[in-house]
Design a protein around this nucleic acid. Sequence first.
DNA 1: ATGCTAATATCACATATGTGACGCGGTACC
DNA 2: GGTACCGCGTCACATATGTGATATTAGCAT
Lengths: 331, 331
Amino acid sequence: MERTKIYDTSNARDEERLAYLAQVATMYYEEQKTQQEIAKSFGISRSGVSRLISEARARGVVEIIVHHPLKTNKNLEERLIRAFGIKDARVLRGRYESYQEVLAWVGKLAARYFEERLRDGMTIGISWGGALYEMIRAIRPREFRNVEVVQLIGATGAEATPTSGPILAQLLAERLHCRSYQLHAPLIVKEERARAALMQERHIKETLGRARRADIAIVGIGTTSPGYYSLVRAGYLSEEEAQEVRASGAVGDVCAQHYDLQGRWLDFPLNRCVIGINHEDLRRIDNVIGVVGGEVKAAAIHGALRGNYVNALITDEAAARKVLQLDGQRI
Amino acid sequence: MERTKIYDTSNARDEERLAYLAQVATMYYEEQKTQQEIAKSFGISRSGVSRLISEARARGVVEIIVHHPLKTNKNLEERLIRAFGIKDARVLRGRYESYQEVLAWVGKLAARYFEERLRDGMTIGISWGGALYEMIRAIRPREFRNVEVVQLIGATGAEATPTSGPILAQLLAERLHCRSYQLHAPLIVKEERARAALMQERHIKETLGRARRADIAIVGIGTTSPGYYSLVRAGYLSEEEAQEVRASGAVGDVCAQHYDLQGRWLDFPLNRCVIGINHEDLRRIDNVIGVVGGEVKAAAIHGALRGNYVNALITDEAAARKVLQLDGQRI
DNA sequence: ATGCTAATATCACATATGTGACGCGGTACC
DNA sequence: GGTACCGCGTCACATATGTGATATTAGCAT
């Protein structure tokens, strides 16, 4: 609100003033000149410069950001890696107020992790979910050569909300200045036959072919817990259907493929009505990074790790502790 | 294993250090404490604090940004408004190195302009193009009530590049935390009949209905000049087809509707094969903001203004001057 | 021209800051 | 265990900076 004010004033006078402040501030902060030097080059008094700089800061012309590093808990990381035989883990330190806050920070951590691993020529597969959305937001734009982004699972229809749906692959591609391949198909179809038909379609076949060859897959991990079950929230399943899913032992899903607490893939219709990569192809991808936050996801994470649906995990302390507890460890 | 350990410990060390630097920097820059106070509360020497702050700046933990205001040329704005009877104009001052740079700055200017005009409850229509992409990037995220974003024209297929295509509506919706309505259809079809059929489809009909009721439309202005003709660059037209288009007098397009230098809509097949809002419906929208940069676009801008396809223009000085010249004025 | 007002300069001084020189204690490495 | 080095503290001092009080000027309306 305050920042908007800066640019809002259509007054030419004020525009001049702001340009002046910005120029002085640039000399001071970016060119490291002393106030004395600046005063001389503008032919004004030194104290005037001091006051101009104060004004520039007060009016938001100068913005100072402190980047706090993301601290991780090496101990929990080590334990997760050992307990589940995964390749890597990052566990964000600290406690957070809200689920949204956890997602934002885990997303940042995941973004740094991903940035460190991305190389020219890679194919990146991506599913969807709040954590991935936050991750992509936190990725710093960079140019790569021959990188491509591929959707791993189908997308919603015309009413796509920003946090879930086909936008993620595009957003990521935008950040990396590369192209993206979408799956123009619903995530879940009503009948297995419809799925079979769609899977034969040329561009779906092609995109899924690319998905299977992904060098890195970035996936969210969903829980079937009431109130947190994405497929219900996104309108794919009714609450009754969700009950059934839970009744058959499903604790979570990766790429809409459901499994139980021990990671056993569940052979029920829902798992066979998904337009997207299947659980076996997913397991064949070298690097599958699960990005997920919050204690509520613990059971789903446990299953995902036990079932080898992901082989690297980015999460927060609370979730990590609970996962290890579920695995019978004392924390 | 050993290597991992080494990597991890050095990492942990550094992480600690950065956290320390960030903490000190926060106290200094955000909480406005003096170095003396900080030294006391950490139990270190004052000169140590001074050195830590230097280190924090050198290592990028502290980032200082100076926001230069966007200066505009009121004189040229006034002349454009008078010459073409448009509602408003913003003409960015200054000369720029590259076309990309012009786009980035014009985009910023357009973003500020748009932010000032956006209100709760509005429907925003959007086409595509490099300038709009830059504009959306420059929009500061904000929450609105009942705002919706609607695509004005069809989108590309699976191979969408980030700067052009269906991503723009989604990106904008993300910035405004609102929903978006896409046109899941190609921008240009081969036959008029195919267009008629598609236009009957429910969700296309519905989205275009919303588009017609837009309170603000934000559009790029395309030129047919060789090397800059977006429809060729995006693969919709071959170079031969482009030649034909130019031969029939087309200098530019708004929402893929082509017109000549005097703004006369061209009654040729291409204009009737577009899935999107038509030129007459576009003219009925209250606020159509053209966002466009670069001298090369001058003829296209002239036509767009003469033909009333846009009624507000955001552009740069070089383009504005050339447009006025084309209109027979001395600059 | 005459005031009035707001912006800026001037001056003075107390602090805050940057930095070089030097020494001490801990650590990594041989 | 020795040694070289690194990080940091201490001290000292030169500058840089913030700020209050007061004078001066520019712009502006009458």
